[in-house]
Design a protein around this nucleic acid. Structure first.
Lengths: 193, 193
DNA sequence: TCGATATATATCACACTGATATATATCCGT
DNA sequence: ACGGATATATATCAGTGTGATATATATCGA
């Protein structure tokens, strides 16, 4: 999904500046979709050119150049239509799992440190999602996103804690010679791709 | 993590062409990191210029221009060093959860269709990871990545199936007026960001 | 024999990130 | 009251990656 579409969606929740939209994404979207200023501001510019949003510049007073955007009727329709046409997919990008994939090439204490790092990361994410839970202003859909995020994090955290000791014990016993024995991962038995 | 680094890592498992690396990524990495030809081929070119890999062109016979890459000693060291310095992080990008976040703007049957789509997607992913399990050539680290992927998918699938009926029932009862009542998600009570 | 699929590389427009630059305002400690 | 940190607010850009497209040959099955 394009950042342009996300911005349009954010504006369907209420008028906002680019900065407001960034804050909204950080507060509510961060665990399932990122967006930076470098994509938000150009997106808003384009949306305005396409007349999907109106722009009201608040100049003179205090902050110069505060640009408040408001979605138009055609913008709202365009967003809903685009949502309906967006396939329901997802993609994980995990440096942590890449690290684990190549764990046999790392010293054991580095591996231990990476496991500790991701545990901290998962804990913080989980605490944050727990702090969001139970707000009466949330729609059922928003609660669903938070609930699924929490469920997935709890599972990953539990898996990490269950497997860690065994993983590190095996890793310590790994002879250096085994590192030269590593081959292509051609183990798939022509199954469903 | 850069695709360049991933390519170097792939070559630490054995000599390969760009095409082989793409296949390896699809078979083993797909559930936690993507990479396309458009990034793999330029990465290999760069790696060769930096002398982290050697290139052996197999021309003349049958396929012209088959470029087989082999990691050098300095390439192997560079990869291990870069791995050790890579922070253990991860980032989800989920169009599905964006869809759910804005579920109140969608017709109920479209929402139902999106839930069905993601269920199918999760099931296929899970079946694939199950087909990879138990290969004796896998390192402990590789088994860990597969195991965590399976655990997370099972949890998400269970959550989806548990919540779906309730979600759709609430959605059906949602009056159109409620769609104009939606506000900014300012519900966070200044907790750990 | 013909179409589909697999092998194999290359390129490019478009999109996004992460860093950087530029200001002002406000809050807090000393 | 001063100064530093943080927050508000926009803009730009080099570097990186995607997804599509182009180009060939080989192989497999109907």
């Amino acid at each position: 999904m394009r950042v342009k579409t996300l911005c349009l969606g954010a504006l369907c929740l209420g008028d906002a500046t680019g900065y407001d939209i960034k804050k909204l994404f950080e507060a509510a979207f961060n665990h399932f979709h990122g967006a930076s200023f470098g994509s938000i501001y150009p997106s808003l510019k384009q949306l305005e050119q396409e007349e999907l949003v109106d722009l009201h510049v608040e100049a003179g007073e205090k902050h110069p150049d505060r640009k408040l955007y408001k979605v138009t009727d055609s913008g709202r329709s365009a967003f809903i239509e685009e949502l309906a046409q967006t396939p329901a997919s997802e993609q994980l990008s995990s440096d942590f799992l890449v690290l684990l994939f190549f764990a046999h090439l790392l010293p054991t204490d580095v591996l231990r440190q990476k496991l500790a790092e991701i545990e901290t990361y998962y804990c913080h994410e989980l605490e944050y999602l727990e702090s969001l839970s139970g707000c009466p202003r949330h729609t059922t859909g928003i609660d669903f996103t938070i609930g699924m995020g929490k469920a997935a994090l709890r599972t990953k955290l539990a898996y990490l804690r269950e497997q860690r000791d065994q993983l590190l014990a095996t890793h310590l016993q790994l002879p250096d010679a085994a590192r030269d024995e590593m081959l292509h991962a051609d183990c798939q038995q022509e199954s469903t791709a």
